[in-house]
Design a protein around this nucleic acid. Sequence first.
DNA 1: AATATGCATTGATGCAGGTCAATACTCGGC
DNA 2: GCCGAGTATTGACCTGCATCAATGCATATT
Lengths: 244, 244
Amino acid sequence: MDVNLNKRPVPKMDAISNPCAACSVRDLSICRVLNADELREIASIAANLEYAPHDPIIDEGEAAEFMFNVTSGTVRLYKLLPDGRRQITGFLSNGDFMGIALNDNYTCSAEAVDRVTVCRFARNKLETLLDKFPHLEKRMLGLASNELIQAQDQMMLLGRKTAKEKIVTFLLSLSRRQVEIGGVASPVALPMSRTDIADYLGLTTETVSRTFSLLKRDNAIRIEEGGMVSLPDLDALQEIADGY
Amino acid sequence: MDVNLNKRPVPKMDAISNPCAACSVRDLSICRVLNADELREIASIAANLEYAPHDPIIDEGEAAEFMFNVTSGTVRLYKLLPDGRRQITGFLSNGDFMGIALNDNYTCSAEAVDRVTVCRFARNKLETLLDKFPHLEKRMLGLASNELIQAQDQMMLLGRKTAKEKIVTFLLSLSRRQVEIGGVASPVALPMSRTDIADYLGLTTETVSRTFSLLKRDNAIRIEEGGMVSLPDLDALQEIADGY
DNA sequence: AATATGCATTGATGCAGGTCAATACTCGGC
DNA sequence: GCCGAGTATTGACCTGCATCAATGCATATT
């Protein structure tokens, strides 16, 4: 028990009786559309879990028993070929929902990139809630639609963009995501390794590294301390990303 | 008026009072989950349209006013870069729904590959029906989930597979699709051009052509008349597709 | 039959990005 | 401050696919 308890601000009653109402990523997540009563109900089926860097979260092929909301940290979703080639299909962070794209089994594996916290739901219980709250199902469909749009963009990137265009597109998408979750457009944090970036963009670590060096040399990006990357001219970068 | 009307078989009452009930792709489409009354209702907001080969169906960026069910033929969905590079994000056929992945505007263009017929819905009217029929919304979410799974596979293909693996994966997916819509696994029809295939797989026409020739030489595929491609050993092809 | 038009195939050559290998960071542990 | 392990960078070289350029082969037109 924390001896300093009485020095901290008293939590609102809400945070005890209705933990989801106090959730810091609620407005980013599927839960945005739920009212106080509904939040209490979803809280009753949610478990808060934590993963250390590199911990596996789900394995492709396993029975898809759970769905997740990422509440902090970064998760990588990926698929493997038998010989070990890896394609990362997405990075998830604050408020992202994991588990729309599944049938009976998971179709991707997921691992923690850094320290990750999630909100885990038994799938059958969450699906019961979806039936009960049509607006939650509608919200889910909206998320699925957004994910499909992103997937189409990623296909364009993988199939038709050059290494330079891929890296710049990636940095800009991180930047936009940071803004979405209430942060700044620049500098952007890069929690994932060069290998992760390579496997996301269909490149090798070496090419990722060389392309970063090239962009640094041209002053298109600047590496700050802590590995943050600052993007001095977003419009110029956007032109590169679009292949002009 | 057709003077031979009385020589033709008398249509069932259903086909007149409830055209959607007689739809040949109903069980493949979102409409599978609708009962007779609901089919009548969706019929009242549907328009049947036809497109000639190469006709544009929707343009990326336009206000997303309509959604579509493909009832026959093949549609290509694609995105362009400013310099003309094209990525085909999918081919749609019998029973496929077009319009899950959109926000206010279309995020992809669509064109008829061959002669195409569609069932067109005004988006706002279809969305009203979604609110009214929760099972239809659920069905839509299921379709979105399947599309996301396919998109992940396509990312693996584009980012990590070789030209040969890409072509074989593509042929197998066409084969599986043919089975899904009630046809045979082999031979498969290829309504789209080499250029379309190239832009779908992140290759050039020349590489597609060379790879077909290679597969022919190795007796992994055989070209039949009418451009059908027969796949004599599906298991062997699957191993190639998976990169063994 | 002769010609045109559009797509597919094949060949010769080039290069972006991959591969292999060495070196340089970075950061935690002591 | 020093060491070790993991990660990133850089260099030298190679290759799979792209590019550029003919040629072949249908179907349509006259």
